Simulated scan of single mutants.
Amino acid sequence: MRGHIGSTLRELRKASGKEAKAVARSAAMSPSKLSRIETGKLAPTAMDVDRILAAIGVSDEVRAGLVETARREATEATAWRLYRRSGFHLHQDAIRSVEAETAIQRVFQPSCIPGLCQTPEYVRAILGAKGLTAEMLSRTIGARLQRQAVLFEPTKSFRYLITESVLRWRLVSPPEMAVQLDRLITLSRLPNISFGIVPLSTPMTEAPSSSFVVYDNRMVIVEIPHAEITTSEPKDVELYLERFSRFELQALTGDAMREMVGSIRDEFLREHKGIQPGGTGTR
């Protein structure tokens, strides 16, 4: 299986006339990694295959055929410790490459503000808990912030669903949380971005469980505490699309969403200023 996928990728690359270095660069991976994949020495993840095919520029028919071949091993779990070893900033580059080839991105997040929507302070708080060196932390923060430029591409669509608890979870100081929530309100006004907030008071028939991202209808990435799981199995993708739709039905959107976020933002601002609800201040 591994060798067959690798040799097929190599043949497609050579047929395209593109050099290995150029494909590796476009796929956000090192030439040595691409070489190991092509020679069957390294099993490519679903994300690797997707990025390589996008860099080669194959037809939809050829792409579908190879994806069908790879589906028997379409689910991979990559431990966070491996990303820490290879460099979290390289993983950010890999995700950016996938996002560049995605028309519609659906994100469900019950734990924290979605990565593309995070302020620099929030990014630092999230990544600072991963035990990175100062240099690696700086490079990873830069790589994540660089990814955010994709939000302003009008040809792409972003649909975000988060729970109310995410808005209240204090990963940064109250004034920084206020700035973060204000950013959500600003982004929600862009025509290609939609936000839905699932209120804590809404009756639910299922628990939110893990966060996940669906890229078009071809791939899902699920985050769990110790690893990141990637799948391109059609039934798995469909399962997460249906789950997203069910949660979306319960979410506040548009002005109602902005009113809720704005209210919580104002709570953080009042706390910072020492103002009690209905009062003028404590000092």
Rank of each mutant, 00 (worst) to 15 (best):
G3H: 12
H4M: 13
G6S: 00
R10T: 01
R10M: 06
E11Q: 09
L12E: 02
L12V: 07
K14T: 06
A15P: 00
S16M: 09
K18F: 09
A20T: 05
V23F: 11
R25V: 15
A27I: 05
M29T: 05
P31L: 01
E38M: 03
T39Q: 14
P44M: 14
A46E: 06
M47H: 03
A54E: 13
A55C: 04
I56M: 07
G57S: 14
V58P: 15
D60C: 05
R63G: 08
V67F: 15
R71K: 03
T75F: 08
T75I: 09
R85E: 11
S86F: 15
F88T: 12
A94R: 08
I95Q: 03
R96S: 11
S97V: 01
S97K: 03
E99Q: 11
T102K: 10
Q105E: 13
Q109L: 13
P110H: 07
S111R: 11
T119E: 11
P120Q: 15
V123I: 11
V123R: 06
V123E: 06
R124A: 08
A125Y: 01
I126G: 01
K130Y: 10
L132K: 04
T133L: 02
A143F: 01
R144H: 08
A149K: 09
V150S: 08
S157F: 08
F158H: 11
R159I: 01
L161I: 14
I162D: 02
S165C: 01
S165Q: 09
R168T: 09
L171G: 07
V172R: 06
S173K: 13
S173A: 10
P174Q: 04
A178W: 12
R183D: 07
L187Q: 05
S188Y: 01
P191Y: 14
P191D: 13
T202N: 15
A207M: 14
S209Q: 15
S209R: 09
S209F: 09
S210G: 06
F212N: 04
F212E: 00
D216L: 01
D216G: 04
N217W: 09
M219L: 13
V220Q: 01
V220W: 04
I221C: 12
V222D: 03
E223V: 15
H226I: 12
K235Q: 08
Y240S: 05
S245V: 00
F247M: 00
F247R: 00
F247L: 03
Q250M: 15
A256S: 09
R265V: 05
D266L: 07
D266T: 14
E267R: 08
E271I: 08
H272K: 06
K273E: 10
I275D: 01
G278R: 06
T280S: 14
T280N: 10
